[in-house]
C-alpha cells in the first residue's frame, strides 16, 4: 500500500487523472469501433511534432521567466527560416536543415532582445509574454504581406503577399516522419521524427549539466542566492529566453514538415497555450521542469486531443456542426485543467 502511495506521489495526481481519462476515452473508442492503431499512430506523430515546442518551455521555466507564453517570437523566426528555404528552391533534408540553420540565429537575436524586455518586467513576465506573442504575430502579419519573397509557390497568384498556408508537398513534407519509419502491429512509428525530438531533448539535457546551465538553474531557483554566488542573474535569464526562443523556432520547422504546410498570419497566435498546457500536464511548475515532464506531457496532451476528437465526433454524429465546437471545448478544457496545475506535481 505504501509503495502504491509513493508511486502515486511520484507520478502526481493530475497525471493519474489525465491517464485515467485517456484510458476511458480509449475504451470508448474501442466500443465505438474506431481503429486504435490509427489513433496511436496519430498520437505518436503529434507528440513528435509538438515535442520541441514543449521542450522550449524548459529553459524558460528554469531560468526564472516562468512559462514562456512568448514562443510565437521563436515561431515567427522558424517560419521565416522555412520560407527562406523555399525561396532558395531547396528540397528534401537540405531544405529542412537549411530552414533550421537559418531560424536558429534569427531566433537567438530575437530572443536576446525579448530577454532584455523580460528583465525589465520581473514578476509579471507571463502576462507580458502573452501579449508580446500576440503583438509579434500581428506585426508579422504585415511582414508576410510586404516581405520581398518571389517564389511562386508561396505568393498569392494575384495580388501581393504570401499565402496563408503554403504547402510543403514535394519539398520536405513529412520527410522526418518517413525516415526509417516502420509498422508495428499496425501502428506506424515515425522514427526520424521521434529521434529528432529525443536528440533535441538530449542537447538541452547536456546544456543543463554545463556550467552555464547550472548557473541558469540557480538564477531561476533563487535570484538572491545566485547573486550571492557571483552569478549574473539578468544574463542567465537572457540565456534561458534565447534558448527557449531558439527551440520554439526549430520546433515550428519540425511541426510544419510533419503537418505538411507552413501556416502564416494568425496561425501561431495560440500555439504557446498548447505547449504550456503540455508541459504542465507533464508535471512541471512555474519553477521546476525537466525533460521527463516534456516527454510525458507532450504525449498525454496530444493523445488526449487525438483520441477525444473522433470519439466526440462519433457520439455527436447526428449533429455534425457540433464537432468543431467539441474540438474547441475539449482542447481548451484540457488547457484550462493544465493551468490549474501550475503549482506543479511536487
Amino acid at each position: 500500500m505504501d509503495k502504491v502511495k509513493v508511486m502515486v506521489n511520484r507520478f502526481g495526481l493530475p497525471r493519474i487523472i489525465i491517464v485515467a481519462f485517456l484510458l476511458s476515452l480509449l475504451v470508448m473508442a474501442v466500443m465505438l469501433e474506431i481503429p486504435l492503431n490509427n489513433l496511436i499512430s496519430d498520437a505518436l506523430v503529434r507528440t513528435g511534432m509538438n515535442g520541441i515546442l514543449v521542450l522550449a518551455m524548459v529553459p524558460g521555466i528554469l531560468a526564472g521567466i516562468g512559462l514562456n507564453f512568448g514562443i510565437p517570437i521563436g515561431i515567427v523566426c522558424g517560419l521565416l527560416g522555412g520560407l527562406i528555404a523555399i525561396e532558395l528552391d531547396l528540397y528534401g533534408f537540405q531544405a529542412l536543415f537549411t530552414a533550421v540553420a537559418i531560424s536558429i540565429p534569427l531566433s537567438l537575436v530575437a530572443g536576446y532582445f525579448y530577454g532584455l524586455l523580460l528583465n525589465r518586467v520581473k514578476g509579471s513576465e507571463m502576462t507580458i509574454a502573452t501579449y508580446v506573442g500576440f503583438s509579434i504575430v500581428s506585426l508579422m502579419s504585415i511582414g508576410w504581406l510586404v516581405l520581398p519573397f518571389t517564389s511562386e509557390d508561396m505568393r498569392w497568384p494575384i495580388g501581393t503577399g504570401l499565402r496563408t498556408t503554403i504547402t510543403l508537398q514535394g519539398r520536405y513534407e513529412r520527410i522526418l516522419n518517413q525516415w526509417g519509419s516502420f509498422d508495428l502491429f499496425g501502428v506506424t512509428i515515425p522514427t526520424g521524427l521521434l529521434l529528432f525530438m529525443l536528440f533535441s531533448c538530449l542537447l538541452v539535457w547536456l546544456f543543463l549539466r554545463s556550467k552555464t546551465g547550472v548557473a541558469m538553474i540557480a538564477a531561476g531557483d533563487s535570484p538572491k542566492f545566485a547573486t550571492a554566488s557571483g552569478i549574473n542573474v539578468n544574463r542567465m535569464r537572457i540565456v534561458g529566453t534565447m534558448l527557449s526562443t531558439a527551440l520554439s523556432a526549430v520546433g515550428i520547422v519540425i511541426y510544419s514538415q510533419s503537418f505538411g504546410f507552413i501556416q502564416l498570419y494568425q496561425a501561431p497566435m495560440f500555439m504557446s497555450f498548447a505547449a504550456v498546457a503540455a508541459v504542465l500536464i507533464g508535471g512541471a511548475s512555474i519553477k521546476k521542469a525537466n525533460i521527463a515532464n516534456v516527454l510525458i506531457g507532450a504525449f498525454l496532451f496530444q493523445s488526449l486531443l487525438v483520441v477525444s476528437l473522433p470519439v466526440a465526433n462519433k457520439i455527436l454524429e447526428d449533429v455534425s456542426s457540433l464537432a468543431e465546437i467539441a474540438r474547441i471545448v475539449i482542447s481548451n478544457g484540457i488547457i484550462l485543467y493544465a493551468l490549474t496545475q501550475i503549482g506543479g506535481g511536487e
Binding site: D221, K224, F225, A228
Partner: peptide, 11 residues
Amino acid sequence: DRRGIGLLLDN
C-alpha cells in the same frame, strides 16, 4: 537569510 540567500531550497 538562510532560506532566501543561503540555499537553493528545491535542489
